[in-house]
Amino acid sequence: MLAYAVRRILATIPVMLFVALFVFSLLYLAPGDPAAIIAGDQATPADVERIRASLGLDRPFLVRFGEWLWQIVHGNLGTSIFTNLPVSHMIAQRIEPTTSLMVLTILFSIVVAIPLGVVAAWKHGTWIDRCVMVLAVFGFSTPVFVLGYLLAYLFALRLDWLPVQGFTSISQGFVPFLRSLALPTIALGLIYIALLARITRATMLEVLSQDYVRTAKAKGVGQRAVLFVHALKNAAVPIVTIVGIGVALLIGGAVITESVFAIPGLGRLTVDAILRRDYPVIQGVVLLFSFVYVLVNLAVDLLYTVFDPRIRY
């Protein structure tokens, strides 16, 4: 197990290196020559050349990549072109709403989707099953901003139950915090719910047809225990895998959701950075999100043995 964990962790290094290389190339290839900008309009080509040399921009690509990586490893993500603040500082300021939104959405989706999938598999072929599958298709087809506006219009503008926009920090009370994130969570969660409900249903269908489930039923185990204890436990590995992979959908969706609901998180930061072409910020956010995504999936891989002790590495 330990050997596997070490091997699995080592295997993420080339992936992370590639992501870093990609993100670095982004800045490298970005239009606009920083040396020319710093030198100003009056500068001669010789001046620009001197500034370029003093910034180290004339050195080979790989040397610059190495130095950039060294800085990243030490937590230095560079400085924003627009605000002149360190990127890591800007990210730290914006991380709470995004983390809250994502964690809430994952919890909410799991709580909703897994029972839906289990029931759909149990009532396979009935109208309940069909309803869940239709919900799943709609979930895949409704872009997060469409659902976001629909929910905000209904529950905030028309019914006035929840705040229309904005974010309330958890430090200002748990209930206002939940109220401010309720609609974004549902909007962001639908596609994730669709994904999880589908995979849960499919895996449960497979598991429910196995002999040990029949044995459990035959010896008189209650329906609920068969479904949620015997069967679901063995369906856990594929479901958990999709929970991990689906985080990519959530990250992309969070960027959009935060725009719809005016939540001052990393998504807003990304959108603002794009509109201002603030490359160091774009770089930092892409790097951070990808890193989180890789780590989540690493954790999922390592958790397999917890869910299924038969898996030995």
């Binding site: 992309g252 969706g253 999100f289 990808s290 995504y293």
Partner: peptide
């Protein structure tokens, strides 16, 4: 694997920024 570990919308955003 490396490309897939960058969420698609973010990857597209990054490329569009270029």
């Amino acid at each position: 694997d490396g490309l897939m570990s960058i969420p698609s919308i973010l990857l597209a955003i990054a490329l569009m920024a270029l």
